[in-house]
Design a protein around this nucleic acid. Structure first.
Lengths: 351, 351
DNA sequence: TTGAAAGCGCTAACAC
DNA sequence: GTGTTAGCGCTTTCAA
């Protein structure tokens, strides 16, 4: 392994000079810099991560905590994770992958050991047990604080109480509202919401409840009848749910689907029952773009902006690490793209 | 931040004693150990990762390189990644998430900086540009080698030349053979293979080609007619592919599907054309269990054992780090589960 | 613009 | 069974 000292010797300068060439923290004459850079390349030098972390108290690593359960929105999580990793790299950071398994202990372990300088948490629950450890984080340098007291962090998702936390999320409330508006504008008066699996609501994951909130309050304002049913993914569960919905509200002409693995089953079932999309019923999905365009009917949808969520979370974190001030909560505005699955409510529909 | 020295002082012992209590590398009297452990808990001590890495030349981190493109088998990749992370933790290792983006440079960076002790590569191509850097890795301690010369590594996937490499993968050749056998045994003589997207073959990802190999050679042995068509995911692409297949081989009664996002579209299209599954045509999928059981017809399938692949890759790596000898190539035997999508070939089918 | 040198917190000889 | 101590490779004052 090549060390900084070896580079220094090779270039005929002192160790500190090499260090400063690398960090750019003090000015170096061009000739010296060139010589050093030449030596670095020639010797194939890479600074030792451990030594650097020890001397500088910064690991240049951010921890990303992903949920353990792989039952939900998996492609989205993956896309976020990759966006986090690539964005982090552009800032000179690497990403440590933590699973939710260890729970709060992982937070303590990473914080305590200085393994990571900061962390990003995905799939935060409304009342998450990891939150107390993170509140007020990101105040490095505040009077009386010692380095390491603190773990700057950003949440992807929105807990019930965001005091002292920085959060990034799609504005699911607005998303719900947007879906209702779109259908209402097309004349639909009876809307059914095919929600996430019951477990998601029981777990009190924020996004599902917020979406419902948005859907309900906008529906109330617009005088729309709304029926919400949680639904497991898959064909069988969707069939049962659909039957119940149509039994209870036969006049339903609009669907909002939030469980991506229920989308295709729903379309298949409607087709099977002779209900044409969008002539007889309209369907709006809340799902990744890819799912919307690959479905058997190109779906009108509100996209889940996974990339942007990941990228934005990292930007927030970098700002914190730089001591910059920033928003506590970044809500990404939803965008509804009209495709082939929604159209005017059928003429004969009950007003 | 609490240091080892503070713990030592608190417990009234020397620093090395504390260190040895932690590592267990020499025997400690019970009373001393108890006192030290008490102090550690009381002070909330966590060893500093950087200092540890510097002093011991081991970071206790393994790097996991995931493909950048999120277009393929995403849930599987995620499941593998999570299995890797959780298994690694049981061995005291953390996982660093690298995207394929940086390519070979990432390998050099991680190797050179001592950021990770070892690495796992996913989605390896038949002739991967990162391989030359890894061949012969894992020989730490061999005469003449200096620490850091080497990057012990394990691949998930199988390149063309496995010399000097350790690989873990599902035995896709056997998988292909198994699918053909199953259908042949049911009397099917004309089988169509709905493969991965053309890009996957162009990229020469090993698994797709190996599956095809297995399918073809077993078909030849059994006198089965086989037609292979690559296929993008989604409904539209599947429709076009299916039309071409049935045009070219109208007598087709068996399908093997390897692109999971083509499965549901295929089932929908067959239904739409009045071909009953499994009465008229049989379908075997190569996909995760979840996809197989959630499909509109419960699918006879060969599962992709994502968890086991991740776990196994880590076990191999741990063995290498311990200097143990091991297999170069671990092929996981495929298992075919019969569900509701396959049955005897229809009586009228051409022999 | 550059160099010298004091640590950062831990591990692992070496001593007893 | 335990203590002493010399580094690990780097960053960052302090001095010139």
């Amino acid at each position: 392994m090549v060390t900084l000292a070896e580079v220094a010797q090779h270039a005929g300068v002192s160790a500190s000079t090499v260090s400063y060439v690398l960090s750019g923290k003090r000015s170096i004459s061009t000739t010296t810099r060139l010589r050093v850079e030449e030596s670095i390349k020639e010797l194939g030098y890479h600074p030792n991560a451990g030594a650097r972390a020890l001397a500088s108290s910064r690991s240049n690593i951010i921890a990303l905590m992903v949920p353990l359960r792989t039952d939900m929105y998996v492609p989205v999580m993956m896309e976020i994770a990759i966006a986090v990793a690539t964005t982090a790299r552009t800032h000179g950071y690497d990403v440590l992958l933590l699973t939710g398994e260890e729970g709060p202990d992982a937070v303590r372990r990473v914080t305590g050991s200085g393994l990571a300088d900061a962390m990003i948490l995905m799939d935060v629950e409304l009342d998450d047990e990891r939150l107390p450890l993170l509140r007020g984080g990101g105040t490095l340098g505040r009077a009386g604080s010692r380095p390491g007291d603190d773990q700057p962090s950003v949440l992807i998702g929105l807990p019930a109480d965001t005091t002292g936390l920085t959060c990034v999320d799609l504005d699911f409330r607005a998303t719900g509202a947007l879906c209702v508006e779109h259908l209402a504008l097309l004349g639909h008066r009876d809307i059914a919401v095919i929600g996430e699996a019951p477990a998601v609501y029981e777990r009190h994951t924020g996004f599902a409840e917020r979406t419902l909130d948005g859907l309900r309050s906008r529906a109330r304002e617009l005088g729309i009848r709304l029926l919400h049913r949680p639904c497991e993914g898959g064909y069988a569960a969707m069939a049962a749910t659909l039957a119940r919905v149509l039994d209870e509200r036969p006049g339903t002409t609009g669907f909002v689907v939030q469980n991506e693995s229920a989308v295709e089953p729903l379309l298949a079932l409607l087709r099977q029952q002779g209900r044409a999309v969008p002539e007889d019923v309209s369907v709006v999905a809340i799902c990744p773009e890819q799912v919307a365009v690959q479905a058997s009917v190109r779906l009108t949808s509100v996209a889940i902006p996974a990339q942007e969520m990941g990228r934005s979370a990292v930007e927030q974190l970098m700002a914190k690490l730089d001591g910059r001030d920033l928003d506590d909560v970044v809500l990404i505005a939803p965008e509804l793209t009209v495709r082939a699955s929604t159209g005017p409510a059928p003429a004969g529909a009950p007003a």
